[in-house]
Every structure is written in C-alpha cells, then in structure tokens.
Design a protein around this nucleic acid. Structure first.
Lengths: 86, 86, 86, 86
DNA sequence: TCGCCTGATAGTTGCC
DNA sequence: GGCAACTATCAGGCGA
C-alpha cells in the first residue's frame, strides 16, 4: 500500500529535506576534492595522472591485471601490439 | 616542468591521502542518502517518485538561474547592461 | 566467457571499423555545427547566447516530458493509472 | 555592432533550425554507435575493453608512452610499482 | 540477483 | 594559458 495523500505529508517533507541536506554536504566535499586537485596542479602535479593514480589504488590489482590481459588480447587480434617489450 | 621524482614524494603522498580521505567521506554520505531512501521505502513511499521530486526541485532553481543568465545575455547583446557588477 | 582470441578476430575488426566510421561521421556533423555558429558570429550574432537558446529549447521539451512522467508516477502511486499501454 | 532586434529575426530562426537539425543527426549517429556496442556485447565482447581499443587507436602512440611514463613516476614515488616485470 | 539504463562524474576540447 | 562547455565514461538504481 502506498502512503495515503494526507497522512505522509510531514514525513514526506522531512524525507526530502534530509536528502537535500545530505546532497549539499556531498556537494561540499566534492568541492573540497576539486580544491585539492587544483592546489596540486598549482604545485606542478599533473591532475590527469593524479586521478589515474587514485583510481588505480582503488582498483583491485587482480581485476587490474585481468583488464590488461583482455586489452592485450584484443589489440593482438587487431595486430596492434602496443609494446613488444611487454 | 612536471614535479621531479624525488622532490614531491611526500607532497604527492599527502595529496593522494587527502583525496582518498575526502572520497571516503563522500561515499559515507552517499550511504546515508541511500539509507534515507530505504527508510522512506519501508514507510510506503515510492523511491522513484521521491528521486524525481528531488531532481525537479534541483532543476527548478537551476533553470531559474539559467533563465536569468539568458536575460542578462540578451540585455548585454542589446547594449543594455542591467548590472554594472557583472 | 569472453570472446576467445582466434574466433572473433574478423568480427572484432569489423566492429571497430564500424565504430570508427560512425565516429568520423559524427565528427563531421560536429564540424558543420561549428561552422553554423561561426557563420552566425560573422553575421553579428552572439554565439554564447545562441548556444544558450538552443540549450533551453532542448531543455524545455525535456522538462515537459519529465513533468508528464512525474504526473504519471503520481497517478500510478495513487492507483490511478492513466494509460494502460504503459 | 550586434544584430538589431527586427532585422535578424528570420536569420536567427534559420540558424537555430539548422543547428537543431544537425544536432538531431548527430544524436542519431550516437544512437547507431550505441547499437554497435550493444551488438558486440551480445556477441560476447567486453564493451569497456572495446572502448579502450578505439580510444587507443585514436591516440598517438608517442603521447601514450609519455602518459605511461608519468604514471610510472608517480606510482614509483608512492612505492606502488604496478608490475615489476615491466 | 543480474543485466540494463539512466544519471552523476571525469576528461577533452574550444574559446577567451 | 586558464576557464567553461560539451562529450564520454562510470557507477548506482531499477526492473526482469
């Protein structure tokens, strides 16, 4: 049964407000992250690479290797071996 | 010149750690939001509708601002600058 | 199971080529759009404003559709299904 | 001088319509691309890897190696050498 | 629960 | 060369 019209009104308002509050907080943190990247950039770091590093640290190494292996497979099938020293 | 290997080491570590800390916080908040939706659902609300309501409320204010921006642009294009602080 | 090395070779090549062909076409159209803006600019129009107009026209129809969708959702949530083809 | 209000009216309409027409075409092609990926997926290919392949083919290899070198530098500074056989 | 799809986020490109 | 718009990728939510 869905919440009847009259009854849930205050509850609905409360829910929406809580969500909006949390979304604001989340946006604020996103802003902080952006700032850190900006500061890093100002100190001579390459943000693109930084993001890559952060992503790699998050990713499980097993999964990472698997993905690399698959890519190799495809590139090989296309005759595009990216680096023969690999 | 990009940050040389030896120099930025500690700085690099600090940057990465700050970002990871912030991303954790952001993820925690995302979890809270999820909980609110789950709770709402348990109370009989339709989450899809709730999400759309939240989205529309966000859009409304964004849209309003954009309309204002457009007006400004037109006024500018016509040489009728409405606000000298622009 | 992912596509084994030998089997999908020609198929893989075909897929990649089709995608690349389509991406070229898309890029060509993007170029045409750019040209139109450039021409408009040469005729004294403000491109930023033009872009905003185009964007808003798109948004308007999207918004209208979303509002309709929201109405549907509410009617559904209240057990008043407006359209059995849904 | 910006285009005066009355004069450019038809021209403005024409511009906007041409742009919208082109954007539709572009969207149609984007849809085609999506279809190709979907079809590939249905045939057992991994779309994420496919996208990577397409991207790599577009990217100049010199640039690619440069980016890899930079990443290595950062990972090294963090003590995270991703693959010692490299 | 899994796969799909939409919405959020990150990256690229073009303009100023 | 920095910033803003646009595009592509990714992740989370929804429906089967």
């Amino acid at each position: 049964m869905v919440e009847p019209a009259g009854i849930g009104r205050d509850q609905l308002r409360s829910i929406v407000e809580r969500i909006e509050k949390l979304e604001e907080e989340r946006a604020a943190i996103a802003g902080d992250i952006k700032e850190v990247y900006a500061e890093a950039k100002a100190n001579g770091f390459d943000t693109k690479t930084l993001r890559q590093v952060v992503r790699l640290r998050k990713q499980d190494s097993a999964e990472r290797q698997e993905q690399e292996a698959l890519l190799d497979l495809y590139l090989h099938a296309l005759g595009m071996i990216p680096d023969e020293n690999r």
